[in-house]
Amino acid sequence: MPRYARSEREALADLMQTLGPDAPTVNEGWTTRDLAAHLVLRERRPDAAGGILLPPLRARAERVRLRIAARPWPHLLDQVRRPPAWSPVSNPLTDELANTLEFFIHHEDVRRVGPGWLPRDLPAGLHAALWRRCSGLARLALRRFPAGVLVQAPGYGELSVGRGGEPLRLVGAPGELALFLSGRQRVARVQIDGAAALADRLRGTDLGM
């Protein structure tokens, strides 16, 4: 059985090792060091990781992340590359479910920051795995968007989300949709069909979790 979470993790760690700790990422204001610290926090500090998603806990999570970011770069990369087996999100039972989308997105955060990048030719199995996770992401990210949005990944599936009303159609490969729906619209190669003003609004809406 393919282990896409593991392969994306290793590819990201290799790329960050090549680029060093000060390379920019798609996440505005974050370097590769910041991104690595985020991943270590998420996997190794469950006492603080809730702040990634919960605003009341965010300040503490950020303080912990900054302390993690101060660690020597080789040590930080090693912790990204070798997650603890006890972690709620990276143990053998949860790794594929919790980390395939996470590490794909963050791998692309580093790949797509500069000029000249191209989408990767992903295996069909990874496309399918990303689409399975995309459906939940779409329902969460677009639940309040003031339109009926038909999200389509040709060959993998489609779903309708949003609050209804004027229709839009969002089309792309599963990985491109994942990037778009996680707030990375400017680097996602998707097609949006519908009223131009509404499409522009979708491209500019804060969809980040």
Rank of each mutant, 00 (worst) to 15 (best):
R139C: 00
R184D: 01
A85Y: 02
L202P: 11
Q152G: 01
D22C: 05
S90R: 03
A70Q: 15
F104T: 11
R81T: 11
G175D: 07
L57V: 10
L15W: 04
P24W: 03
L181K: 14
E108Y: 12
A173G: 08
G136W: 05
L168H: 15
A48V: 06
R67G: 05
N27R: 13
A128P: 09
T100A: 06
R184S: 07
R60I: 00
L118H: 14
P46F: 08
H75F: 06
D206H: 14
P174D: 09
R169T: 15
A59R: 15
R120D: 07
A178Y: 01
S182F: 01
E43F: 07
N27Q: 12
P119M: 08
L177K: 13
D14Q: 10
P72A: 02
P88I: 04
G116N: 11
R3C: 07
R42C: 00
D47I: 04
A48Y: 08
L77C: 10
L177Q: 05
L57R: 15
P2I: 02
R9Q: 02
P119T: 03
G165A: 00
R82Q: 12
Y156R: 12
F145Y: 12
L137E: 04
W30A: 07
L66V: 10
R42V: 01
R9S: 10
L97K: 06
E10W: 11
D47F: 05
L66T: 04
A13H: 13
L207S: 01
V113Y: 03
R63N: 05
A173F: 01
F180W: 10
A98G: 04
A197D: 15
W86R: 13
D47Q: 10
Q152R: 15
L177S: 07
L130T: 10
D95H: 15
G148Q: 15
R184A: 03
A5M: 00
Q79S: 11
R60S: 05
D78N: 12
R133E: 11
M1L: 00
A128T: 10
F104M: 05
P46Q: 13
M16Y: 05
E10H: 15
L126S: 06
R6P: 00
A129H: 14
Q191M: 00
L118N: 06
Y4V: 01
H75I: 06
L179P: 13
I105E: 02
G165L: 02
W30I: 03
M209E: 00
C134P: 04
L77Y: 06
P154M: 03
M1A: 12
G175Q: 12
L168T: 14
L101G: 03
D22R: 15
N27F: 01
F145Q: 13
P46R: 05
A59N: 09
R6I: 01
Y4F: 15
L57K: 14
L177C: 04
N99P: 13
G114M: 12
L142E: 07
A196D: 14
P92Q: 09
P56L: 10
L12W: 06
D206L: 08
H127N: 14
G204F: 00
G208T: 15
R6F: 00
L35I: 02
R184N: 08
R3A: 13
A37M: 09
D121E: 12
H106G: 02
A70W: 03
D109W: 11
V110Y: 07
E10K: 15
P92D: 08
T94L: 05
